[in-house]
């Protein structure tokens, strides 16, 4: 279905989207790259000249750098662990026949549609508050000391909030994957005498491997740039300063654009490493 004419038309039709995205990608990225090699302080006169790799050196040697990397790793790793493990279990449960499947499905998916600022504030105030939060009430009811979640385990608190938001996503994708499993395969294994756990280990889990990979990759990309949840809860204090938040602070709060840009370039590279793996999987699927 391709003639010269239709190919020419196709190029024309693709042009707006391609040009827009190319601009959206290149212009800011080149600017960030440029800033990262400059002393750039908007409040003190703006562009103060080239400084080579100084910003990078300062960014990587700053006392806040390694803690922020660690926080990022813990946050991303924690959320991934919770969502993938609970997601698999939940998907297995929801795949069983039971009454009211449609409604339960809706209940489980709902958190994904809650805007990040709302979920963060609701959790912070109405659940995790040490005086009036629901958890405090619950602890008191059992005679325990109320726990100040956000100041005593701030990173864990944020992990809980974010995991609650992303659990539906993981569950939904894993459920879709489970449902595509050929039930005859399972029945054959059952006939062969494989017990439940073996069936899960040898058939269900390998079948889910790809879906789990996809969940991990996509969530990683989104989780690396978690912002609003930190912004409205701890503002980056108490060890919740992730890389994203650190860069944000350098750029907008301390207005050290050069330094922030160096961090920004680092974040871009980091995200790209994850993206390459995801692209591989997606690309393979395109051919199929």
């Amino acid at each position: 279905m391709a003639t010269q004419h239709s190919r020419a038309a196709a190029r024309l039709m693709m042009a707006p989207a391609v040009v827009l995205l190319l601009g959206w990608m290149l212009v800011p990225l080149i600017m960030t790259l440029t800033f990262s090699f400059k002393k750039y302080l908007p409040l003190k006169g703006g562009d103060l000249g080239w400084v080579g790799f100084e910003n990078y050196i300062r960014f990587f040697t700053a006392s806040a750098f390694w803690p922020s990397v660690l926080s990022t790793l813990i946050l991303v790793g924690g959320v991934l662990a919770i969502t993938v493990v609970l997601g698999v279990l939940l998907a297995l449960l929801l795949d069983q026949p039971f009454w009211g499947q449609g409604i339960v499905r809706i209940l489980v998916i709902a958190p994904f549609f809650v805007m990040p600022t709302v979920s963060a504030l609701v959790w912070k105030n109405m659940f995790m508050d040490p005086v009036n939060g629901l958890f405090a009430h619950l602890f008191k009811a059992f005679g325990a000391q109320p726990y100040d979640w956000l100041s005593q385990s701030p990173l864990l608190s944020i992990i809980v909030i974010v995991a609650w938001q992303w659990l539906p996503f993981a569950t939904l994708i894993l459920l879709t994957a489970i449902q595509s499993l050929d039930s005859e395969q399972l029945e054959a294994a059952e006939m062969d005498g494989a017990p439940v756990l073996a069936r899960f280990g040898y058939i269900v889990l390998p079948h889910l491997a790809r879906a789990i990979t996809v969940v991990i990759l996509i969530q990683t990309i989104f989780l690396l740039s978690i912002f609003a949840e930190i912004f409205v809860t701890t503002q980056g204090s108490f060890g919740t300063k992730t890389l994203t938040y650190l860069i944000y602070q350098r750029v907008l709060e301390s207005q050290n654009v050069g330094l922030g840009s160096a961090g920004g370039i680092f974040a871009v590279i980091l995200a790209n490493i994850v993206a390459i793996f995801l692209m591989r999987i997606v690309g393979k699927n395109l051919d199929a």
């Binding site: 279905m1 391709a2 239709s6 190919r7 038309a9 196709a10 693709m14 989207a17 391609v18 995205l21 959206w24 990608m25 212009v27 800011p28 990225l29 600017m31 960030t32 800033f35 990309i221 690396l224 740039s225 912002f227 994203t244 860069i247 944000y248 750029v251 907008l252 654009v257 922030g260 840009s261 920004g264 370039i265 974040a267 871009v268 980091l270 995200a271 790209n272 994850v274 993206a275 995801l278 692209m279 997606v282 690309g283 395109l286 051919d287």
Partner: peptide, 29 residues
Amino acid sequence: FVPGKKTKDILLWMLSTKMLPAVGVLYPI
């Protein structure tokens, strides 16, 4: 409907732009 040799690459490239961390380009924007 008019897939060419580069279609797949363009699609994947488009997706990859979605994965740029926003904070990296905050100040330029």
